[in-house]
């Protein structure tokens, strides 16, 4: 069986979720691999959510928020960016490919961009293969 990546997507309510909605209403074709969870702001995405998603069987995590300067709560996406950069470093230290997590800015009018982001990220995860958690990797040694 070919590997179909399971991706959890955290999309902010004000921009990216609407952007994804637009991709849908415009009937754009893109891979169905992202399971979308709507959050009020990308700044709401606790790094715990990302680790929890991976630990629960996701192969990748996509976080989308408003473009810099456009966050509905002014600062949320900057916080998301800083957490993401630090999380990348933490993941690497855990021996996990940081490429399994991605942060992208998608505005409410960027349905096409959303479809493109999903397409690229799905391919990226497909290439990386299924995520095996550190505990599982140790058990299957």
């Amino acid at each position: 069986m070919t590997f179909e990546p399971k991706i959890v997507g955290f999309l902010c309510n004000w921009c990216s979720y609407t952007g994804a909605d637009l991709a849908g209403t415009a009937r754009m074709k893109y891979p169905p691999n992202v399971r979308v969870i709507r959050v009020m702001c990308s700044g709401r995405v606790d790094p715990t959510f990302v680790l929890k998603a991976l630990e629960s069987g996701a192969d990748g995590v996509l976080i989308c928020g408003c473009h810099p300067g456009d966050c509905h709560y002014q600062e949320g996406n900057y916080k998301a960016m800083r957490r993401y950069l630090l999380l990348e470093r933490l993941l690497a230290d855990f021996g996990i490919e940081p490429e399994r997590v991605k942060l992208e800015w998608v505005s409410a009018s960027e349905g096409e961009r959303y479809a493109q982001v999903v397409k690229e990220f799905t391919e990226q995860i497909r290439e990386l293969g299924p995520f095996v958690s550190p505990m599982k990797a140790m058990a299957s040694k």
Partner: peptide
């Protein structure tokens, strides 16, 4: 109520870094 101390610490720390330039 916290399930992962490190993730919470990371979150707190990243929040207070004073820069918006990646």
């Amino acid at each position: 109520g916290v399930i992962d101390q490190g993730a919470k610490m990371l979150s707190a720390l990243a929040s207070v870094i004073d820069s918006n330039d990646p």
